[in-house]
């Protein structure tokens, strides 16, 4: 279960992002998990609920956007049908993964003391 090591890296990134905001509470953590990024969202959520304890994101809500995979032709950018061979129907070009291959910490919502 590599989700645990990814969540551990996520917690480290959150610590760094929160450091310039003293006294801030992390309310929401927005992540984007690609369909072909090799992560099971439910396992990721469970790992987050365990590993956030004692970290800056303790108590935060995890918001996951699951990004569907999208293959496109490298040459002409035509979309390739889901499940089909990874060759462009229009020009025969090779495919590239245009979306759905990444794991990203997109954004944090922080509650900061109003002074």
């Amino acid at each position: 279960m590599h989700e645990a090591s990814l969540v551990s890296a996520l917690c480290d990134q959150i610590d760094r992002a929160v450091a310039p905001h003293p006294g801030a509470l992390v309310r929401v953590v927005h992540v984007r998990l690609g369909e072909l990024a090799g992560v099971e969202p439910e396992l990721f959520r469970v790992a987050f609920e365990t590993l956030r304890e004692g970290r800056a994101c303790d108590g935060a809500t995890l918001s996951i956007v699951h990004e569907l995979a999208e293959w496109r032709c490298r040459a002409c950018d035509a979309a390739i049908t889901r499940g089909a061979a990874l060759r462009c129907n229009a020009c025969g070009g090779a495919a590239r993964l245009a979306r759905g291959g990444d794991l990203f910490l997109d954004r944090l919502e922080l509650e900061v003391p109003d002074v």
Binding site: L25, V112, P113
Partner: peptide, 20 residues
């Protein structure tokens, strides 16, 4: 309303694999 915490949004946009 003073003393209310305010919510700010912080863009990070970092890959979870960046350290690796």
């Amino acid at each position: 309303g003073c003393g209310d915490p305010k919510v700010v949004s912080v863009d990070v946009h970092a890959s979870l694999l960046s350290a690796n």
